Amino acid sequence: MKLPIVAYGDPVLKKIGTDIDKDYPELKQLISNMFDTMYYANGVGLAAPQVGLPIRLFIVDTGDDDNGKPGYKRVFINAQILEETGEAWSFNEGCLSIPDIRENIMRKPNIKVKYFDENWVEHTDDVDGMPARVIQHEYDHIEGKLFTDKVSILRKTMLKGKLDAISKGNIQTDYKMKFPNKSKKR
């Protein structure tokens, strides 16, 4: 089932997610729904806050590469980034909660991340390159941060009108969204 994606401006996107346990209600179905939602919206990652849930859960699927080699696909529950190393590099990032805005964001290329998968198996992985970047982006969501928080104050000021329009629902997307400041028509 495709879930509505919460738009910029919703308070849930600024909350630090809480840990969950094995008894979290309908967790397998939630994970399945998140993958359906992410694929439908053509994303490579999706965090629970983006579907309105302030919990420490996100998914990543970088897709197959140009040679058909399988991409990096994982479920991250209660993730903790333990280490970020290497020389930071810039990449033009976007976000399903902030459609039509892309910005160059600096991130380190190597991370060590500890998490549980969907079967509650604990992992500590060293990840690099694009999968590391996607993990960092989604991890920011469960920490109550958005990629727009990483741009300069001047750039954020320049984006203010677009961000306000997104929160009010004055945009078009190919996927269902929930807008925090959309005016109710009478």
Rank of each mutant, 00 (worst) to 15 (best):
D100Y: 15
V75L: 14
K150T: 02
K184R: 12
Y24A: 08
M130Q: 12
R107T: 03
I135S: 01
R186M: 08
L163P: 08
P4H: 04
V151C: 13
V113K: 02
G9P: 06
A79N: 11
G45Q: 01
I171L: 09
V12S: 03
E103K: 04
D149R: 12
D164G: 02
K145L: 05
G94T: 14
W120F: 09
Q29N: 07
R186I: 06
L146Q: 01
A132W: 00
I142M: 13
H141I: 09
C95E: 04
K162A: 01
V127R: 07
S183D: 09
T157V: 00
N181Y: 15
E103F: 04
R155C: 05
K22T: 10
E87A: 12
P4F: 06
L57M: 10
V75A: 15
A132P: 03
G52Q: 02
P70C: 00
F179N: 06
H141R: 00
N119Q: 11
K15S: 07
T85Y: 15
D10I: 06
Q80K: 15
A7M: 07
N33R: 11
V60L: 01
Y139R: 07
F147K: 14
Q80H: 14
L13Q: 07
I81M: 13
K185H: 10
I135T: 02
G71V: 03
K15C: 08
T124I: 12
D36Q: 06
K182I: 14
R56Y: 08
I77G: 13
D126Y: 09
G161S: 14
G129E: 11
R102C: 07
D23M: 01
R56G: 09
M34N: 04
D100R: 15
T148R: 06
D36N: 05
L57F: 15
D126Q: 06
A132Y: 00
P180D: 04
F91L: 03
F58I: 15
Y40D: 13
A7W: 10
Q172N: 11
T148A: 02
L163F: 11
V113P: 01
D174T: 08
V75Y: 15
K22A: 12
G71K: 04
D19V: 13
V134R: 01
K168S: 02
W120D: 00
I31Y: 07
N181P: 13
D126M: 05
K22G: 10
K162D: 02
F91A: 05
L30T: 07
S90Y: 10
L13S: 10
L159N: 02
C95K: 02
I142W: 11
N181G: 10
F91V: 06
V51F: 10
L53I: 06
Y72M: 05
D19G: 10
N92D: 13
S90G: 14
N67H: 14
G144H: 12
W120R: 03
H123V: 13
R74Y: 13
D128E: 11
D117M: 01
